[in-house]
């Protein structure tokens, strides 16, 4: 018998929906990060956050390291560095805590998110 996936244990698409509003709001409100989010299309930005959370939650996605690199290249050019990445990871951790996600599961989510670090920072 196969064990339920991380995505299923977290609650699937409904869990992502619950997380994305909290997460995106936290990131936008962070003055150290908001300059990387000054594009005007908030719906589009939220959709990207949702795609990211789906991946971090172990859900269905077709992200590749190359996609992440290309998408974040302009932000790295604008000065995004490891401390910004860590701030976003901190907001993800706080979002999971606010939603009452058990620590063993949130640990898995944060590990997936952390695995994108080099691609996101174009290293």
């Amino acid at each position: 018998m196969s064990e339920a996936s991380l995505y299923e244990r977290l609650g699937g698409a409904a869990a992502v929906d619950a997380a994305v509003d909290i997460f995106y709001r936290r990131v936008l409100a962070d003055t150290a990060l908001s300059r990387f989010f000054d594009s005007t299309d908030m719906d589009n930005q939220r959709a990207k956050q949702k795609a990211f959370l789906t991946m971090a939650f172990g859900g269905p996605n077709t992200y590749t390291g190359k996609d992440l690199r290309q998408a974040h290249k302009p932000l790295v050019d604008k000065g995004m560095n490891g401390s910004h990445f860590d701030s976003v990871a901190g907001h993800l951790a706080a979002t999971l805590k606010q939603l009452g996600v058990p620590e063993n599961l949130s640990g898995e989510v944060l590990a997936i998110a952390g695995s994108t670090r080099d691609d996101v920072l174009n290293r």
Binding site: D21, Y24, R25, L28, A29, T40, M42, R46
Partner: peptide, 15 residues
């Protein structure tokens, strides 16, 4: 419109 959209969102309205 764009400034207010962001502020409304940060004030707690769902996007």
């Amino acid at each position: 419109v764009r400034t207010a959209q962001k502020r409304a969102y940060l004030a707690g309205a769902a996007l």
